[in-house]
């Protein structure tokens, strides 16, 4: 079978095809296969690996355009996923600068981690001498996010980063902010939340690639949603993103129970917005939207009950 590997020697990009007997690699992991190729066919092939047990995060690569953690992926799984294809394409993680072959540059990501103010700022009641207290429930809340191994698999697939990384950060950076903001020992969750807001929190496009690919079952997208909710709760709710989310909520709870597209545009960007008005006009021209809807749609059947339910949930969970 064949492996087509995307290579970069520091100057030029090219593809190289390696032919391997299936029986030599079928019991191996993806990382094992790369090691096999390097040690038997071509020692100039570069990639990184350290622990080979899915904890150091060094070995993320893409297979057929999707990111995998090399040492945590069995070849048999790939055979199954890609229906016994006899050619695989292996490439470096996307959304990183490639340094060589399958090796990418981690420095920008580390700098992004700095932006969300890493490190716990503990509550005043705790001290360096005596440590902190935390109950099981508070611990359980954050421990999943602590599983992040900085492998970059989520970031590789992030559609927002691909479109433009200048106003955004890797999904795991938001996960790191989340875990600090939601730590019961933390003095002020807003230290990290605010930093997340300032660095693109509202720009996530909800593509859920991050959630889907993470080998540690972390959902960057859900952590982003969590941080947004926290920011809104704490009054950090100005700007287009919060207004957009809020209008869905307003329609659901305060208005008809259903979303109104035109109100959405107006609430998000304000009545004077020309840009979106253009869209609304496109919609109306296509006959898709009743301009009168702007004055309130029809309330859904049972909306009062829905509001009651939500109020009850809110009351029960008041902090």
């Amino acid at each position: 079978m064949k492996f087509i590997i995307d290579r970069f020697d520091g100057k030029k990009n090219y593809q190289q095809t390696y032919t391997v007997e299936k029986q030599d690699i079928e019991a191996l992991t993806l990382l094992g296969t790369l090691l096999f190729i390097k040690q038997h066919l071509d020692l100039t092939l570069n990639f990184t690996a350290s622990c080979r047990m899915a904890i150091c995060g060094a070995c993320g690569v893409r297979v057929n355009g999707h990111a995998y953690l090399g040492c945590d992926t069995k070849m048999t799984e790939l055979f199954e996923e890609y229906k016994d294809a006899d050619t695989f394409r292996i490439s470096p993680l996307a959304n990183y600068t490639v340094l060589s072959d399958l090796v990418v540059d981690w420095e920008p990501a580390i700098e992004n981690l700095r932006k969300i103010k890493p490190g716990l700022v503990a509550k005043d009641e705790f001290s360096e001498k005596e440590g902190c207290r935390q109950n099981q429930e508070q611990y359980d809340r954050i421990v999943g996010q602590w599983d992040c191994i900085l492998c970059g698999v989520c970031a590789s697939e992030c559609n927002k980063l691909t479109a433009d990384h200048s106003d955004y950060m890797e999904p795991f950076v938001f996960t790191h902010a989340w875990k600090l903001a939601n730590d019961s020992r933390s003095k002020d969750p807003m230290i990290h939340t605010k930093a997340a807001v300032m660095n693109g929190l509202w720009n996530c496009v909800h593509c859920h690639e991050c959630t889907n690919r993470c080998p540690k079952h972390i959902s960057g997208a859900e952590d982003i949603a969590g941080l947004r909710a926290l920011a809104m709760r704490k009054g950090l709710n100005s700007g287009v993103g919060p207004a957009h989310a809020k209008s869905f909520y307003t329609d659901l709870v305060e208005d008809s129970g259903r979303l109104n597209e035109i109100r959405l545009a107006l609430r998000t960007e304000g009545v004077s917005t020309v840009a979106r008005a253009g869209t609304a006009i496109t919609l109306m021209r296509a006959g898709k939207m009743n301009p009168l809807e702007i004055f309130g749609g029809h309330e859904i059947e049972g909306h009062k009950d829905l509001v009651k339910m939500i109020e009850a949930a809110k009351a029960a969970n008041k902090e």
Binding site: G119, L120, A122, F126, S127, E128, K129, E130, G131, C132, R133, Q134, N135, Q136, Y139, I142, V143, W146, L180, D183, R185
Partner: peptide, 19 residues
């Protein structure tokens, strides 16, 4: 150990919330 706890290391906890 206390220092690490203070730095934010999420140790598993006993019933009293201690490391």
């Amino acid at each position: 150990i206390h220092e690490l706890d203070y730095l934010g290391m999420p140790f598993s906890r006993d019933s009293k919330g201690r490391v």
